[in-house]
Each structure stands twice: as C-alpha cells, then as structure tokens.
Design a protein around this nucleic acid. Structure first.
Lengths: 156, 156
DNA sequence: GGCATATAATTAGATATTCTAATTATTAGA
DNA sequence: TCTAATAATTAGAATATCTAATTATATGCC
C-alpha cells in the first residue's frame, strides 16, 4: 500500500479533532478532577519543564502571556504551581509544580488515560503497535511545528 | 516490540493535544480563511451529514444547543449554511451547506492540509503508511466514543 | 556610569465563547 | 383533548481570551 502525504494529512485533520473531543470531555467529566484542557496542559508542561518561565509556558500553550499569567494565577491559588523570581534574571519567574500539582496531574491523567485504554481495547496488539509507532513519529513533528505566536510585526 | 494499551493511551494523550495546537493555529492564521475550530467542524460535519438537525450538530460538537444555535446563526449570516424547517417534524430544522459554505470549507481545509503536508515531509513512505493506518484504526474508536453530553439527570 | 531601548510579567478593559435558565412552537401519549 | 416531552431559540451570566498599558529589570551604546 502506498499513501500520499495529502491523504495522510487529510486523515489527521479528520481524526485529531475527534480524538481531542474525547480527551476534552473526559477531562471535564467528574471522573477526572475538573481541570480544563489548558490547565492540564500547563501542569503537564511544567512536569516536563520545571523552572520554565511564563513566556516558555505561553509559547507552549499557544496563548498570550496575559492569558498564561491568569492560568498560573489560578493554579497558584490552588497551590498546584509555585512561582519564584528567577535568580539569573529578576524580570523572569520560575514555574514549578508543587507536590499537590504533581498529584492532581497524575490523577487526572490516570483517569483520562483509563478512558483511552477502554477505547483502545478493540485493537489487537499488532494494531496497538501501529498506533504507538505513529504517535512516536508524529510527536517530534508537531513539537517542532510548535512555536506559534511567531508573527510578523510591522514597525511604524 | 510489544506495547501496552496504557503506553499507547499515554502517547495519544501526549500527541493529540500537540497536533491540535498546530491545526488550530493554522486555521486561525491568515493562510486559511479565519474560521475558528468549531465553525470549521460545523461545516465539516454538515458536509458529511447534510440535513442534520441542530441537536445532531450540538451532539457532534460536544456543545449545548444554544451554543450550536449561535454558531449556526453566524454561519447563516455569512451565507455558508442554510436553515430549513423540517418537513417531518416542524419543531426541527434541517441544516445544510450552501455552495459558498462548501467552498470556504474546501479552501480552509486545503490550506490546513497543506501545512500538515509540509510537516509530514520528513517521513518516509513506510512511515506515512504507519501513520495512515493508525488514523484509520483510531477514527472509528473516537467516533464511537463521541456522543458526549450524556449526563445523569437528577429529577426533583 | 548613565540613558535609551528592549524584555518579562502583570494589570485593566474589551471581546468572544460557552453555559444555564426561560420561552415558544410542535409533537406524542394517556 | 389535555398534559408532558422535545426542538429550537432568546436572554443573561460566567469564562476565557485578546490587546493595550504598566512596572520592574536588563542590555547596549556613548
């Protein structure tokens, strides 16, 4: 079988929003703690990048800094994230999960993951492997694609 | 190689939101017409389900009917979607794309797809095939998972 | 060293999106 | 036929995001 990149792109465009709907619904459902997707992704990002700055976070989320700031406000209020002024550059802050943050993240992820596991049961182990390899192939591509918010600026 | 459903679920949870970010960014960017994701998904749904009711749409989007109604309002204002009272049940309406709607959808999808094609270029044809097959495996699972908004109701 | 410019985070206010509750019209069932 | 349920809509509140402005700090040029 040979498939064109066009066809694959089309399939991705079809399936990813569909999958996202399920993930989102599960996160919102009472089974998980009621983290919204951006909150969850913030915790997830900070788990992998402890000490990140607000801008790092905003960049990763594809949101503006004020929005990221507000998200962090909320998480700090709930004691899930800690803010610290950066040693090296005092304009910057350093973000990190608190133990409570790690805990909430783990619980939420576990329940969403459990839901996905349910969904995946119809697949054979060979099919699972295919999906796994596909995800491994796609991850670096979309990571690279990341860096949103790169916009042309028009200086007066 | 043998992978557990847990591991695969975890990968999906990692990659899908990442992919979604790219898709969303592309849709918003000036390259595409500036459809938001829900608008795009509405058009996409109506393409595949012409004559759907508002509730069908709301169910598919995972949104409430009032929200779906507003989305349709906007699309009708822009002459991308047509509303018609249903013959069979006059409480219902029937939704369908206008030719302009199909056109906008096609253009938007084409540009987003083109961006994805760019991203996929590093993959070999064998790797593309893996991704394609994975998408084909996942699509029916997430379609089934669909039907959100099924909530317990507590009668007084 | 001191001043102009740039950068990081935040705050304030406006806009957009979605939700819940209530309304209207129509259908289905006792 | 009357009561209850259902489909779409409208109204108003809550949430999330954005742009613009503010504050504090850093960098670079002279």
């Amino acid at each position: 079988m040979t498939v064109s990149t066009d066809l694959v792109a089309r399939e991705i465009l079809d399936v990813v929003p569909l999958a996202m709907r399920t993930i989102r619904a599960e996160m919102r459902s009472s089974r998980s703690s009621d983290l919204t997707v951006p909150l969850f992704r913030t915790l997830h990002f900070l788990e992998r990048h402890p000490g990140a700055s607000l801008q790092d976070l905003a960049g990763h989320l594809g949101l503006t800094s004020p929005t990221a700031c507000k998200i962090v406000d909320g998480l700090v209020d709930h004691a899930l994230v800690a803010r610290q002024p950066s040693r090296a550059d005092r304009r910057k802050i350093t973000l990190a999960l608190t133990p409570a943050g790690s805990d909430v993240l783990e619980k939420s992820r576990a329940s969403t993951q459990a839901r996905l596991v349910e969904l995946l049961t119809p697949l054979s182990s060979l099919q699972l492997e295919t999906v796994f390899r596909a995800m491994e192939l796609l991850q670096p591509l979309f990571l690279t694609a990341g860096s949103p918010l790169i916009r042309e600026e028009v200086k007066p």
